Computed example of a mutant assay.
Amino acid sequence: MVTFKSSISMFTGIVLVVMATFMFCLGTFAWWQNKEQLAVLIGSFVMYALGGIFVWMLVDTKYTFTTNCLFYSNGPIRGKIAIDTIRKIKHQKGWINESFLKPALGMNGLYIYYNKFDDIYISPEDKEAFVNYLLKINPKIEII
């Protein structure tokens, strides 16, 4: 198995860290204010869980190849794509994204078009090595 970590844009990294910190602080503040009420304890737990999801996304966004599949993970978002179904790859720079599924933390990434109508946006740190590895497995992929 070969794994490529996601690049992380400064903006995305800052937003995730701020949101996680905010959730942890909010949960702690609510818990300190009223430790006896069940609703406050549940609310604090939810805030901690959301903060944990933001941290999970920050540290566990990666793309892993097996012999015939590309697995992607972005915190709780996980999936796989059969490499032989990939039709084309397009380089993308900037904030505008046309894909609904974005297990990525970087602004400059790749669109992978697979099956007949499916696409995904990813942002591996080493895009060139990622594409070259993918082309070794499936040389029919069109690069745009």
Rank of each mutant, 00 (worst) to 15 (best):
L58Y: 09
L110M: 04
F22L: 14
G51H: 01
A30M: 13
I42M: 04
L101M: 13
F22D: 13
D84T: 07
I14R: 02
T85K: 14
T64Q: 07
F4Q: 00
M19V: 09
K140M: 15
A49C: 06
D119W: 15
D119K: 14
T85M: 09
I53D: 12
A30P: 06
K102L: 01
F11L: 15
A82W: 00
Y48S: 10
S7W: 01
G75L: 02
Y113M: 09
N138T: 14
I8G: 03
E142N: 05
W95M: 12
A30I: 13
L134G: 04
F65R: 04
F11P: 07
K90G: 09
Y121W: 12
Y113H: 11
I144M: 11
L105D: 06
L41R: 14
Y72V: 00
K140V: 13
V55W: 03
E125Y: 05
K62R: 14
A39L: 05
F130H: 11
F54P: 00
T3Y: 01
M23Q: 02
G27E: 02
G94A: 04
T85C: 12
I120L: 11
P124K: 14
M10V: 13
L58N: 10
S73T: 15
D60E: 15
P103G: 07
T61H: 03
K93Y: 09
K140P: 15
M47K: 08
V40G: 01
S44R: 08
S123H: 01
T21A: 08
K93V: 07
G43V: 03
M47Y: 08
I143C: 08
K116L: 09
Y121I: 10
R78G: 00
F24L: 11
S9T: 15
S123Y: 04
S73H: 10
D84A: 14
P124T: 06
V2S: 05
Y72E: 01
W56N: 12
K5G: 01
E36K: 07
V59Q: 10
G106N: 03
K127C: 02
C69S: 14
N108G: 02
N108D: 12
G51W: 00
A30H: 07
I112P: 11
I144K: 07
K93G: 05
E128P: 00
E98D: 05
N132T: 06
D118M: 13
G75V: 02
A129D: 13
P103N: 05
M1F: 09
R87E: 04
Q37M: 10
G27R: 00
L50T: 04
V46Y: 09
E142R: 11
T28R: 07
G51M: 02
I122H: 04
T64D: 01
H91M: 11
